[in-house]
Computed example of a mutant assay.
Amino acid sequence: MMLKNFKIKTELNDVVSLTDDIKEFVRESGVKSGICVVYTPHTTAGLTVTSFWDPKGFEDLQDEICRIVPTRIDFKHQHDTPQDAAGHVKSSLLGVSMTFIINEGELLAGHSQGIYFVEFDGPRNREYFVKIYAD
Results as ranks from 00 to 15, higher is better:
M1L: 04
M1V: 09
M2W: 01
L3M: 10
L3F: 07
K7S: 08
K7H: 10
I8Q: 01
K9H: 06
T10F: 02
E11C: 00
E11H: 11
E11M: 09
L12K: 14
D14F: 00
D14P: 01
V15Q: 00
V16N: 03
V16G: 00
L18I: 03
L18N: 02
D21E: 12
D21T: 01
I22K: 04
I22E: 03
K23L: 02
F25C: 04
R27L: 04
R27E: 06
E28D: 13
E28I: 05
G30E: 06
V31Q: 11
V31C: 09
K32T: 04
K32N: 06
S33C: 00
G34K: 09
I35G: 02
V37R: 12
Y39N: 13
T40G: 05
P41F: 10
P41Y: 12
H42D: 05
T43M: 09
T44V: 11
T44F: 05
A45Q: 07
A45C: 11
G46Q: 08
L47Q: 06
V49L: 12
S51P: 05
F52S: 02
F52Q: 07
D54H: 13
D54F: 12
K56Y: 14
K56T: 14
K56Q: 04
G57D: 09
G57T: 12
G57R: 14
E59P: 00
E59A: 06
D60M: 08
L61T: 13
D63L: 14
E64V: 02
V69Q: 11
P70M: 11
T71G: 00
D74S: 11
D74L: 13
F75K: 14
H77T: 08
H77Q: 14
H77C: 05
H79W: 07
T81V: 11
T81I: 07
A85E: 07
A86G: 12
G87N: 11
H88N: 10
V89G: 08
K90Y: 04
K90R: 15
S91W: 05
S91K: 03
G95F: 04
V96M: 03
S97V: 01
S97W: 02
M98H: 10
F100Y: 15
F100Q: 08
I101V: 12
E106F: 09
L107C: 04
L108K: 15
G110L: 06
Q113E: 15
Y116T: 01
F117N: 05
E119I: 05
F120H: 11
G122T: 04
R124L: 01
R126T: 01
R126F: 02
E127V: 01
Y128N: 04
V130C: 13
V130M: 07
K131D: 03
D135A: 07
D135E: 15
